[in-house]
Every structure is written in structure tokens, then in C-alpha cells.
Design a binder for these strands. Sequence first.
DNA 1: CGCGGCTTTGATGTTCATCAAGTAAAGTGG
DNA 2: CCACTTTACTTGATGAACATCAAAGCCGCG
Lengths: 231, 231
Amino acid sequence: MNEKKKPCSCANCDFRDVVFSYLNDPAVEELCDHKEEQFFRKGEVINHQGEKISNFKYLKSGLVKLYRRTPSGDEQVIAITRPFEFVSNMSIFSEDRYQYSVSALEDSVVCMVKLDFIKALFLKNGGFAMGLLTKISRINDKIIAQTLDIRQKNLVGRVAFVLLYFAHDIYRSQIFEMPVSRKEIADYIGMSTANVIRTLSDFKKEGIIRISGKTIEVVDKEKLEIISKHG
Amino acid sequence: MNEKKKPCSCANCDFRDVVFSYLNDPAVEELCDHKEEQFFRKGEVINHQGEKISNFKYLKSGLVKLYRRTPSGDEQVIAITRPFEFVSNMSIFSEDRYQYSVSALEDSVVCMVKLDFIKALFLKNGGFAMGLLTKISRINDKIIAQTLDIRQKNLVGRVAFVLLYFAHDIYRSQIFEMPVSRKEIADYIGMSTANVIRTLSDFKKEGIIRISGKTIEVVDKEKLEIISKHG
DNA sequence: CGCGGCTTTGATGTTCATCAAGTAAAGTGG
DNA sequence: CCACTTTACTTGATGAACATCAAAGCCGCG
């Protein structure tokens, strides 16, 4: 009945179900003492490619993009994701430094725990390890599958794909504010900025979508799906 | 001094250092009782996309390709790897069924352990879990990085890249037998078969490589590297 | 020795990137 | 808050890169 103890905010965190379900209450309590929440304004960089990895991070709220800068200097966008994906990507266990950068596309809250603490927990708790492995595998699978899906499409198919991705997976709404620039879309699906814009204009002319600035509305979802599946 | 015990072949397996280093001798002994080795002739399919996953598999010797068939029916090669990469890829923990197929490019030996056994071991032994997670992460990182590297290059750069990949990473020799068809190369780097051949012919004319059938010799490695880095 | 698959090469057309020039929008400093 | 600068967006015109098609050569295999 020592109810006076400070309640741990982690106990009710949505993320607990995702990978921390194997931790019992005392363990979560301890985790809580080691975590830190950090706020990132839209546009801010959360992890920088090449920087040393010292924390296990995951996205609590917001929207982020994972990307890298190529040797030749341009940007490749690898993924755009919502909670509760990891921020310090998979590399945390395999690499010393970040292979990719992560930045906030919307105001975001990131929760971080010292990596050493996670690793120690890992050694002690196999269930936790397995939960984490499953989650990381799933994220990796998704990234690889999406990359392959995109590669297979032609230009118009890619643009259709990306529109559907935002409408369905990110915003779950036919009408939304595009959180990225046209150039970022281009870097995401691997084509030139001019042609992304051109294709969007074509879609608009054909009445498939409505555009006004950053606001996009998917009018003819079915047609977009057909185009996405190569057309 | 009960030396009469049957010696466990797993104890000295090269693979032990890769992920099983956290297992002590009795644990390896037990693992040994649950493993099974299987031989695959060149061309045989080891895992089939869509098939239920029941074993943890890794490549002991040989060479394999990881690929998938797209909805539209053509093949995308995701990776070509040597031991000791996993065969039942990362998805083993995240998915019920294989997302991709794996086939042998050379005669190969695959070692397999019931997945249930690995999972149980996982829960008991955090160190083992961590070793495995690290290994899986590294493989995933490599696949993603390679895919991004390829995407960034133009046609000739991609062909140069693939030649260097076989010469350096796979065969460690300037001269080697290409284990895949021209079409498979095309599916690997995402271009048409005809253009792969054309580019190879161009390289030959310029004296950068020598070709006779499946045998390829890299003559001017430096030039190939320049071309690979966009040329 | 003839059939079928893989390979090679040339010719053709499409797709897409690049360049350029103009417009809208969004910061920035006075 | 307005003039100024910069950055993002848009559109058209051009050419390069690449896929596709077709036809022929090669090679292994029954």
C-alpha cells in the first residue's frame, strides 16, 4: 500500500505493447528512470548520418523521414513513417554509427533510452529480446518490400503509389496536407522533381486528384490503384 | 573422462563464431541434436516464397540468390550471398511465411534447426538473442544499403558494380565463372537483359574486361571502379 | 542433328532527366 | 508591414538513356 510512489508514465505508454510487453512492472519502472523524452520541431534533424549511436530511440508521436546522403551529394529517402517505428534504425545493434539520417516531417516526440541499458536488459530478458527482434525484422521487411515495389513501377505508377501511401497508410484520409516537398517525393521514389510535378498535374487534369498547394485530395482512388499497379 | 561420447560436429562449425558464440558446449551439444544438414544442387530451390516457415536455416557452403516474383510475374533478385548469411531470411521472426524465395546458384549445403527450438533458446539465453539480432541487423543493413547504392547509379555504373561485386565480394578473384545468367544480372540491378549484354560488350571492346561465355576476367579494375561510381 | 533456350547485335521508339524560364510562395531584414 | 531575396513550384522544349522488338548466332542436350 505504498501508494505515494511517483507513478511511472511508461507503464501506460502505447509503445509498451509494441516491444515492452515482455517487461513486468518493476522492469518498466526501472526503464522509466532511464528514459528521456525529447521534442523535435518540424524540420529538425533527430539523428545525423555518421553520428555515434548512444541511444535507443523510438517515435512516440509525429512523423519522420529516414534518408541518406549519397557520395555524389544528393538525398535518397528510404522511408517515411509514423509511430511506433524506431528512429535509431536497425543499425543500433550492428553498427557503431548511424548509417542514415532521420528528420521530423511534423512536430515529433521521441523517446530515448541509453543503449547500454537496453543491451543489458536484452541479456537478462530473452522475451524482451525476442519482442524487439520481431519488431525490428518487421520494419526491415517493410522497407525492403516497399523499395522493391517501387523499383518495379514506372513513373506514373510511383507517383500513384506515393499518393495512396500518404492517403491510406499515413493519414487514413482521402484529403491531406502533403508533409514533404515535391523534391522529397522525387527522392523517395527515385525520379526527377520536374517529372513528379508533371505527373501530379496530369492526374489533376484527368480529375483523379485535386491539388491546391500542399493540400491533396484523392478523388478517384480506384483509378489511382490501377495506375499504381503499373499503368 | 567419459570420452566415449559421440563428438558433436557443431562444436567446430565455422558458423558457431558467427551467432552461436554465446552458447556453451552443452548448449551446442543440444543444438546439434536438433539440426539437420541438407544438400542442394545448383539450381534447386531452398525456400519458396509463400511457403510456411518452420526452420531456421543458414548457408554452410555454396552460393545462393534471394529473390521474389512480383505480382506482374517477373523476378526481382534481392541479394546474392555466400556463407554465412541466413537463408531463411530475416522474416523468420516477423512473418509466418517466406516473403522471398531462395535458390542455389552453386551446389550448397544448408544447415537447419527447428524454429521452435531457436525461439525457446532465445527466451532462455539473452546473449544468444543479441548475437542473432546483431547478425540479422547487419544482413538487413547490407541489403538496404546495396539496393540504395544500385538505385543511384545509371546503367553502365550498375553493370560495373555487379562485376566488381562478383570479383571482390563473391570470388575474391579477377577471373571467375559467372554463376548467373544475363537475365538474372538484369533482374538484380533492375534493367533489361539486352542492355546488360550490350554494356558487357562495350566493356569488352574497351578492354576493361574479357569475356568468353560465362567466364569473366576483370582487366582494368580501376576503370571499372570509376565507372561504378557513376560514369 | 535438330530443337529450344540463352545470348548477341542492330534498329526503333518510349520514357524520363535535364535545361531553361517563368510564377508563386515563403522567409528576411529594414 | 513592405520591399527584397530566396526557395519551392510549374511548364515547355530538347535530348539522352534506356526498353522493346526482331532476327540471327551459339551452345548444350536429348
